[in-house]
Write a protein that binds this DNA or RNA. Structure first.
Lengths: 223, 223
DNA sequence: CGGTGGGTTGAGGTATTTCAAGGCTCGTGG
DNA sequence: CCACGAGCCTTGAAATACCTCAACCCACCG
């Protein structure tokens, strides 16, 4: 499925500035809304826009020819994604739940960066931040056990989206598994273990809302 | 082990410009030589310099508390490493063999980037290039089989260092294993399989010089 | 020439995957 | 209002890819 961005942004161009850390400027911005499951852009498609999540959640992933999937990152409210230096996207991005994003035309961004050093610096900062995440994730994928991966995931999500003591995960077990390089069953089992050990609790019966009861013990697992 | 850079660079400062894609400029450069196995910088150390491999090979890695190691990248002649936006290094870097590097002071680089847009752009390009590599490597670590990983490794090294038909690997099996998220035995077995299938051959008896006999078959394994 | 640092190979163990079954929630339509 | 199916999650049992442990070989070097 391909989302036609030209048909797109219903709210029309805006000039609100500040896309993430980007400074106020004559950068063309607009907002767009994607339904749960909708593709925002596809791997290898020309990278026309840069995106920021206003509300909702996005997964970006790569596929192997036989369908194996690796999610490289989850993007939550405030996160910028679609950062490319080349001409094409290197991930497919999909809305995990109904999601609002803000878009900035890369071409206009590049122009502004030529003049305005702060914009150039912000682009570098955001790219470096993605790099740091990817580097940490390589360690997780290459060397951590299933339990350690799930513990690290919970701490990451706790940091990024916990409100009022509970984290409401937007993504399903399969997404978590494809992020952690595991199967959904292994993720489920690891969560059960942590639950049985009294390290986490579920609120509601959807299994998507988690409360961390023993952060120190979780941290001990996140080597 | 800690390499004291102040005691350091024997050849004295130079002004050769062009560190990787960096434009000619008043950036302070110097060269330094590291012995096989020597640490160039350590994880979490303040990041004072940016590095470029002139000759030799470098591994950068992260360690878990119990010694498990994940090598994030190998840096070969021409590669720039030590790219940080923050204040501290996020990897430990070691010379795999005797290695000559060129150094640029990050502080001076940052100054120049404020004035010269091309330097800023080059920094972004290099960071984006590291990011692309890390993203591809996440897919490998998260979702590929041992044979696929080794095949991908061989193709990467073939692309980056094959001369006159043979690739002379600077790194040992353990390094390869820690790069691919495997054990050295599994790497060795995978290489044996590829050898038995006639896909690759060894030249000399050190097992470090490899010639690819059937690139198409290797490519078929690199999904 | 003995020791050390790679490298290979075999046999057995195990963490994780695969396959399978069952439960719960929720939306939809009869 | 209830039946029904779809989606999501958990749990068990069996399979397996990879790891661990161990032996051995070879090249190199003081």
């Amino acid at each position: 499925m391909f989302v036609n961005l030209n048909a797109g942004p219903t709210k029309g161009p805006r000039f609100l500035g500040e896309l993430g850390k980007l400074s106020q400027n004559e950068i063309i911005l607009s907002e767009f809304r994607y339904r749960r499951g909708a593709e925002i852009f596809g791997e290898a498609e020309p990278a026309e826009y840069l995106y920021q999540v206003i509300d909702g959640a996005v997964r970006s992933y790569k596929l192997l020819s036989d369908g194996r999937r690796q999610i490289g990152a989850f993007h939550l409210a405030g996160d910028v994604f679609g950062l490319e230096n080349g001409e094409a996207h290197r991930f497919t991005a999909e809305a995990i739940v109904d999601t609002t994003v803000r878009l900035a035309k890369r071409a206009s961004l590049a122009n502004v960066a030529e003049q305005d050093v702060t914009v150039a610096r912000d682009l570098l900062t955001m790219t470096a931040s993605s790099l740091r995440h990817a580097e940490d994730h390589m360690l997780l994928l290459g060397r951590k056990t299933a339990l350690e991966r799930v513990a690290a995931f919970l701490l990451e999500m706790d940091r990024r989206l916990t409100a009022a003591g509970v984290m409401a995960l937007p993504m399903c077990r399969r997404d978590i598994a494809d992020y952690l390089g595991l199967t959904l069953e292994t993720v489920s089992r690891a969560l059960s273990v942590l639950h049985d050990k009294g390290i986490l609790g579920f609120v509601g019966q959807t299994q998507r809302q988690i409360v961390l009861l023993d952060r120190p013990k979780l941290g001990a697992l996140d080597l």
